[in-house]
Design a protein around this nucleic acid. Structure first.
Length: 253
DNA sequence: ATGTCACAGTCCCTGTGA
């Protein structure tokens, strides 16, 4: 079973790339972020033609998360059920695995109200995960907008005082891990930076100026069944790429 | 000189968010 997470930075603008990627890689489940679409615009018919059931939690201009699955798609949940109008989390059960696609708030700056919102959002995610049925397989994937450690940052000296690296943000990830989840990519590749995002500006991709902020958290059972984890850097190349590359996990399921 | 991208409204340029 192949499960991917990918921030596509507008599914409208990225559809040709996404369609090509699905055909080339045949993932079973894809956790998508930043669709930037209303539900009316979401290409569910086109996905069905490719063999995927899908669920979308759309907003319009900003945010928007989705799940594509060839292994069934049931028990869809949208948001935390707390009235937050921002479409940043969708859950579903696919092939016996509970999956969540998360688009964690960016935070903007440490002294910005959006940073407070980011930390509150991560705490809410932790609280929801802490109450899950521990017997279930779960994958919590998405754009976390946080680097788990300095190994995930191309040059930590460039990020002093910035978001994505701060102690409270990293502590929020530790709290999520403490519910019994493991960062799959780092577990399988303890030394590989494995960046998943590069700024469009300054030729960042070409220069290797990346961050690892797109993560797949898995429960202990799935970790023991994991056979591979990788970043598809090719998806960041060529015509009209997203600024994020897909992160893939493979499991003996 | 943030050297880019995507979106929507002010609508073919500009402000916003990343």
């Amino acid at each position: 079973m192949k499960i991917a997470t990918w921030n596509v930075n507008s599914l409208t603008a990225r559809w040709a790339r996404v369609e090509g990627w699905l055909q080339e890689h045949s993932p079973d489940v894809v956790l998508v972020q930043e669709t930037k679409q209303t539900d009316a615009k979401f290409p569910s018919t086109e996905l069905a033609a490719l063999g995927y059931e899908s669920a979308h939690y759309g907003e319009g201009r900003w945010n928007g998360v989705a799940i594509f699955s060839r292994r069934g798609l049931d028990e869809v949940t949208r948001g935390f059920g707390d009235g937050d109008p921002e479409a940043r989390i969708i859950g579903a059960t696919c092939g016996g695995v509970r999956v969540y696609s998360c688009y964690v708030p960016n935070g903007r700056a440490l002294d910005d109200p959006h940073y407070t919102y980011k930390l509150a959002w991560l705490a809410k995610l932790r609280d929801q995960l802490a109450t899950r049925d521990l017997g279930d397989h779960v994958v919590v994937g998405g754009d976390f907008n946080v680097t788990p450690s300095d190994l995930d940052v191309y040059d930590p000296s460039q990020f002093v005082g910035a978001t994505h690296v701060s102690q409270p943000e990293r502590a929020a990830l530790r709290a999520i891990e403490a519910t019994g989840l493991t960062d799959l990519t780092r577990a399988l590749h303890p030394e590989l930076p494995s960046y998943s995002w590069w700024d469009y500006r300054n030729g960042a991709f070409h220069r290797g100026w990346g961050l690892r902020i797109d993560l797949l958290y898995v429960d202990a059972g799935l970790l023991s069944l994991a056979t591979a984890s990788y970043v598809d850097r090719d998806a960041r190349k060529g015509e009209k790429p997203s600024d994020h590359a897909p992160v893939v996990g493979e499991f003996s399921l």
